[in-house]
Design a protein around this nucleic acid. Structure first.
Length: 506
RNA sequence: GCGGCUGUAGCUCAGUAGGAUAGAGCAAGUGACUUCUAAUCACUAGGUCGCAGGUUCGAUUCCUGCCAGCCGCGCCA
């Protein structure tokens, strides 16, 4: 239809010319039809679909793996929540997204590294340590007032209690300035361990935990400042040191060193990105909460100031999660301790349902997470629909085995016996899977896998309800078992990308 | 005020490199289990794709303006 306007002939005429010139070297085309205003529809022979099924059933986990990545290395940095409190539900969305994206890129042939950046420097660490310190002192003298901007969550009391169990009143007798560093370190480690545990139970394992403090210790922060100065991008004003980010499209210049002499968080962040580039990643993916979107232009500018190509930096913003309880919004703030933790969601809803929930939405869609609703729908949650499809197939194989029908070898099964529309439908979906992997990876959109899975599960349930795999006809049964093998293989592979289990029975 | 994201069925959401009759789940209604698992299946109903212009043979998709919601706009992180 695009050609039609260039050639100035009706689109159907163009279609006729195209159809007349089709060469079918592999003999896979059954027929071609021109439809509507000028669409050309290709109908492929059944032998093509059965040959794809043979591939899928034979290749095992390798089926669907793409090679668009060509082994290039990608780093996906995500979550990187400040170690000042437990992960909450919003973190869960970012974690599910980042982890699945990494799995997806792996399936598409990239060499992927998952990294968590620990903000273990700065005022918030100070506040954290002081919060625990005061709670500790309050255990001995409840009259001591809490600090104004301290972290109010109960987990701070728990940490203080732990310290008392260990050290009794030892820190009570130290001058405050000597005690605080211990409280900072202890609280940070305690909270990080909790975060690690929560993520592990959520199915998220990082390859690397990168400490912000290490950038100071190694001199990289100073080094970056020096490099930027030599390149002439730094200037002093009002006693502070500024980076000329407006040169690269930011709407104002940014402070790197405050007039107090303290560095802003932006300085180590540039050093961090330099460090990433130096590690040789072909692509660097930063996944942030959408509340940080204003930060992207300055980060891009910082990268360009150092002379790195900003096109190798991809920033994905994940919209925040608005939490509802019985339809009413609940405000969330780590400091005020009003939040639902990821742990609570894991305990109440489960890892699979939570991950699926997060992954059925585009990262830039706003998400209302109604706890009561998710709990209520738990048995009707689409995740179980997909898992059930897998469990049903496994059960068929159990039944077949019990009846003495072993899974046939691919070489002597006659797949041309698969003739039902429902069977063709499943073969087409299996054939689509590699394309889904490729396009999802290119778009960096793991949620497409979720929707594909629901389509595949629908096809399976529909088939299962109307037909039987194990029949009196041995040859037909064998062909159908291979079809089930193919569907099961794809279900497993796709669920693995989402980080959701494929249960053997339900 | 400026910027980002979003607005599609009663609800929660897919879908657009511009193209055929806009899809799914839930909720609603009607049906289906002596069979390999009913956490399932079939059918029905449900839409001015936020509003108004523009570009185009053709716009839910691209452009402009407006409206609504959320989020940013520090020498905080």
């Amino acid at each position: 239809m695009t050609l039609a306007s260039i050639e100035k002939v009706p689109p159907r005429t163009v279609a006729e010319v195209v159809v007349a010139n089709i060469v079918d070297r592999e003999g896979m085309i059954d027929r071609v039809e021109i439809a509507g205003p000028g669409y050309v529809n290709f109908f492929l022979k059944k032998s093509y679909w059965t040959s794809v099924l043979k591939d899928a059933a034979g290749m095992g986990d390798g089926y669907g793996q793409a090679d668009i990545g060509e082994g290039k290395s990608v780093q996906v940095e995500f979550l990187s929540a400040n170690p000042t409190g437990p992960l909450h539900i919003g973190h869960g969305r970012v974690a599910a997204f980042g982890d699945s994206l990494a799995n997806l890129l792996k399936a598409a042939g990239y060499n992927v590294q998952k990294e968590y950046y620990i903000n273990d420097v700065g005022n918030q660490m100070e506040t954290l340590g002081r919060s625990t310190y005061i709670r500790y002192k309050q255990m001995f003298d409840p009259g001591i007032p809490f600090i104004q901007d301290g972290y109010k969550g109960n987990y701070i009391r728990d940490i203080a209690q732990e310290i008392i169990t260990d050290a009794k009143d030892r820190y009570l007798h130290l001058p405050e300035e000597e005690a605080i560093p211990f409280f900072i370190e202890y609280s940070k480690n305690n909270i990080l361990n909790g975060i690690r545990k929560d993520l592990e139970d959520f199915g998220v394992l990082f390859n690397n935990w990168f400490s912000e403090k290490s950038l100071y210790d190694s001199g990289e922060v100073e080094g970056v400042l020096k490099a930027l100065k030599e390149k002439g991008y730094l200037y002093e004003s009002e006693g502070a040191l500024w980076l000329n980010t407006t040169l690269f499209g930011d709407d104002k210049d940014r402070v790197l060193v405050r007039s107090t002499g303290q560095k802003t968080y932006f300085a180590p962040d540039i050093a961090y990105h330099q460090n990433k580039f130096k590690r040789g990643f072909h692509l660097i993916v930063d996944i942030w909460g959408a509340d940080h979107h204003g930060y992207e232009p300055r980060m891009r500018a910082g990268v360009q100031c150092l002379g790195y190509p900003e096109k190798n930096l991809k920033v994905i913003l994940v919209q925040l999660v608005a939490l509802l309880r019985e339809g009413k919004p609940v405000s969330m703030s780590t400091r005020s301790a009003e939040f639902v933790t990821l742990r609570e969601v894991l305990d109440e809803v489960g890892k699979d349902a939570a991950r699926f929930m997060f992954l059925t939405r585009r990262p830039d869609s706003h998400l209302d997470f109604d706890l009561d609703l998710v709990k209520k729908e738990s048995s009707e949650n689409p995740v179980y629909y997909v898992e059930y499809a897998h469990a049903r197939i496994v059960n068929i194989f159990r039944q077949a085995e019990a009846r003495g029908i072993p899974e046939p070898s691919l070489s002597d099964v006659d797949l041309s016996l698969l003739d039902l529309p429902e069977e063709i439908k499943m073969m087409k979906l299996i054939a689509l899977y590699p394309e889904v992997i490729e396009s999802s990876a290119l778009a960096l959109e793991p949620h497409r896998i979720t929707f594909y899975l629901q389509d595949l599960a629908t096809a399976l349930h529909n088939y299962y309800f109307h037909h039987r795999v194990i029949t009196e006809d041995r040859r037909l049964t064998e062909a159908r078992l291979i079809l089930m093998r193919g569907v099961m293989q794809v279900l497993r592979s796709a669920l693995a990308i989402l980080g959701i289990r494929a249960p053997e029975r339900m």
